[in-house]
Amino acid sequence: MKNFDHILLIGFGGPETPEDVVPFLKRVTAGRKIPEQRLLAVAHHYEMIGGVSPYNPWASSLQIQIKDALKSKLPVFLGHRNTAPFLKDQVLEIHRRGFKKGIGVVLAPFRSTASCRRYKENIHEALHEHGITELQYLYLDPWYRDSKWIDLLASLARQTFESIPLALREQTEILFSCHSIPSVADSACSSCIYSAEYETASNLTAQAAGFKSWKHVYQSRSGDPSQPWLGPDILDAMKQAAQEGKKALLVIPMGFLSDNAEVLYDLDIEAKNLAAEIGIEFFRASTPGNDPRLADLFARLIERKAAHPNAGAGCVI
């Protein structure tokens, strides 16, 4: 990796103490005119899962795992968009230490304005604001359909499916679930369509896991209720499954590299409680989390980008 001198992992961030929750939510929703009442309701969701998010400790662990997997002296930095260590602060520290060219790794598999472009814009803004011209980033090529990524997801999904009692498996509805976004943002990036990347990865995962049928749903929508968001919503799909006589649900989170509030509350509490109400068994596949295969995947993608910096659809900012 002679053409690069560091790696920058780019994460969303999560609150690490109960006192961090509301300030974190205000940063996440800045400029979106979210009512205070809605923020407090979401803050209560965090209370229900222990008052904090496991995201930051997971990301820090991944940082160490990737450095070990790379087996090199190349430093691996970590910056979050919404919590410390803040992305803009990390970029300034990287510049202060004299680094010139890095590989940026956005910790999200599907590209959209919220899950990709805003992170890169934050880096660009930090550089522009401080007049820094000699620090440059090249980003990983799209990896949502990478075979190792699909194999990892399929193994996690299959493991949970095999935990379902045999008598229920033929009557199990398999739901791939991804974070919803406003419909207008689905194709906001010129080179990607969020829903298409999600559905492609889900289809490949289902096929690799040997599933016969499955559906794509969305979860965790927020914002103006009058604004169209991607659907169908997972809760509506669950009710439909019960009406069709399904006895169990296997929910496979897609786009979530680790557990967070959307997984631990929206799925493990809200969706699971609904399943109990409508009389259907609920099973949820694990997220990759600290599985070493995830760090190995990123190490391989980083090495590939370093070896072929001009190949693929990576971009320079």
Rank of each mutant, 00 (worst) to 15 (best):
E197F: 05
P18M: 04
R97N: 14
S60P: 11
S187K: 14
S187L: 07
L25T: 13
G79Y: 07
V22A: 09
A69T: 10
A261K: 09
H80T: 08
E16G: 05
G314M: 06
I64Q: 13
C315P: 07
L235A: 05
T133N: 14
L74W: 08
P142M: 02
A299W: 00
V263D: 09
A306V: 04
V105C: 09
E125L: 14
R145W: 13
G31Q: 05
F161N: 07
V105N: 04
A313N: 15
S177K: 02
A201G: 06
S190V: 15
I64L: 14
E281I: 03
A311H: 14
A185L: 14
K215H: 10
A313Y: 15
L127C: 07
C178G: 09
F282M: 06
L140G: 01
S222V: 15
E303I: 12
D224M: 02
A241N: 00
F298C: 00
L39T: 10
G104C: 05
K26C: 08
S220Q: 07
S222C: 12
A237H: 05
K215C: 11
G131D: 15
A261L: 15
K100V: 10
H124V: 15
M238R: 02
L74P: 05
W143H: 05
Q159V: 11
L166P: 10
E170V: 03
L250A: 02
K272D: 13
P57L: 06
P57S: 01
E129R: 02
S180A: 07
I150P: 03
V52N: 05
T287K: 01
I123E: 11
G245W: 06
A306Y: 00
A242Q: 13
Q90E: 15
G314H: 03
A306N: 01
L78S: 05
R111G: 01
A242R: 12
D233S: 04
Y198G: 10
I181Q: 01
E129A: 04
S222P: 06
C315Y: 15
G98V: 15
A126Q: 09
T287N: 13
Q136F: 08
R300A: 08
L153N: 08
I193Q: 09
